[in-house]
Design a protein around this nucleic acid. Structure first.
Lengths: 140, 140
DNA sequence: TCATCTATTGCAAGTGTATTGCAATTATCA
DNA sequence: TGATAATTGCAATACACTTGCAATAGATGA
């Protein structure tokens, strides 16, 4: 686990290194798919890590602030998911509408398009979301 | 108002032409921005159209099924918005993170990219979401 | 026009995700 | 080790949206 990065970030912002923060970060690091707060909660329960769902929410919030974790919102899912950000390229996702599987897309095609949008709208673009849905090879 | 389209769609699916359905469609047609269910509810109240919030939700659901209205979900807004679909090109939006203003983007750059993603992931892509956030000219 | 049938509506209650207040707990540091 | 302040768990709350059911109101045929 990126314990050093976690510790450094927490210290730098006057926060404490706790069991639960380490457990949540550790779980996200060893899970390939983005997890929802509920999934984090349930998985840690299974692993006998005592943690409240409220604490999961507060923890992912902190991890986001430290830049260690990214929050993603998939199409019509009605809940946020979290994944490790540190050491990974900016990317997007595709989700199967049958089985719910989530796969990373390794390209983000929006850099050029962002320039175009800025000149068209006179906005200063700060961020974007891009998510695809469809059928995965198994569910076709 | 596209009363003909509404009537035709409703009849074709064994549904009834009601005051509330006409009122919701009419409001969406004369409002340039996408509206949330609560905003539809409040605006119709102002106009002395008696309607319950529950009915707004049920109505936009029907209008979506008829293909007359599109549901959009902006970045971190936590609520869906609805806009007229009929007669309009497929498009996306940019929202100002200061004042909340929503502006249409007149291009969708994802047709070519969709092909690429399909060959990369072996998914069959069905839909996508793409939303930008930033600062509008006034708020910069 | 009126009666009948059934879709639609409003109200109340219920879901599910996420947040907040506060007292109890625990990490940190002298 | 003991003081102090951040963190946690629990209960309550907020908010978007949905569901059950009785009352209402379109649609249809006589």
């Amino acid at each position: 686990m990126n314990a050093a990065g976690l510790k450094k970030g927490l210290k730098a912002t006057g926060r404490r290194v706790t069991r639960t923060r380490q457990a949540v970060l550790g779980l996200l690091e060893r899970t390939p798919q983005p997890l929802s707060a509920t999934e984090i909660f349930e998985q840690l329960q299974k692993e006998n890590v005592a943690i409240d769902l409220v604490t999961v929410y507060r923890t992912v919030h902190v991890l986001k602030e430290l830049g260690l974790v990214a929050q993603i919102e998939l199409h019509h899912e009605g809940q946020a998911r979290y994944e490790i950000k540190e050491g990974r390229e900016h990317h997007h996702h595709i989700q199967c509408q049958m089985c719910g599987a989530i796969v990373d897309l390794l390209l983000c095609p929006l850099k050029k398009i962002t320039k175009l949008i800025e000149s068209q709208t006179k906005f200063v673009v700060d961020d974007h979301t891009l998510e695809f849905t469809g059928l995965c090879p198994r569910c076709q």
